[in-house]
Design a binder for these strands. Sequence first.
DNA 1: CATTTCACCTGGTGGC
DNA 2: TGCCACCAGGTGAAAT
Length: 281
Amino acid sequence: MPELPEVETIARGVNARVRGDRVVDAWFSGAREPFKTPPARQAKGLQGRVFLSVHRAGKHIVCEMGPATNGRAGEQARAEAEWIVHLGMTGRLLVTTAEAPREKHTHARLTLKSGRELRFVDPRRFGRLEFRELERGPAFDAPGAEPLEIGADEFAALFRRRRLSIKAALLNQKLLAGVGNIYADESLFHAALRPRRAAGRLTRAELERLRTALKKVLHHAIRLGGSSVSDYVDADGERGFFQLQHFVYQRTGEPCRRCGTPIRRILIAGRGTHYCPACQR
DNA sequence: CATTTCACCTGGTGGC
DNA sequence: TGCCACCAGGTGAAAT
């Protein structure tokens, strides 16, 4: 469901829990949707492999998988494959005991050598699971720029000559990777910019305000998430996601925390968009 | 080509 | 309680 901060938190939590563990069995549901790679191929590819590391790229969780056979002791194995998890709107990646009750809508279960399981649960099935053999193709690379790393020049260049709204531009993963509806609305509020403003018409100063607001909001959310990794990753924690105090997101009609004006909700790119008509210009 | 709309899913909520 | 409309953190294909 998750946007960049949630995905970052989940990737860190999963990394800490499965790094060095080995897949001894892989099970996938019969459902069609969540598989970018046919489930049988994923199961076969993952079988026996060791988790070298897990990290985030955009909204994707990328698991670097090492060889299925034990290497020489003390030798650092090289990644041979990647298991890529996109959580869509409702996906969760959980580390559980083998005995933990199986939740409805479980689409993948990797049994690990430690006895634990890594489970993918996704009611709406907007999530995607992909498996790549690095020998046969390129490593995964999220298309857009990382909002936490991008510099002022590169950021400004993303929006130059674009006629779409800045809100729609922020949501476009080919421009920036990882920004979703919550943090788009929140960062536009902190930058004091109307979501309907044409992206290409923002001044350099406004864009710089947006870039710093976005960074700040994302870092803050990661910091909060980091203190409750277990809410996301350990068997059935689900809090985490909404614990942040939003300034505009889903506060339609409520008073702006800065000036008291009722927050407005409009539709941009089919997504609910929240802003303060007084603070944002 | 850039941009917008819509379909893909299940589940929760609030009105009647 | 039931029924219904509407909403949800995402994205890629189809339409404009």
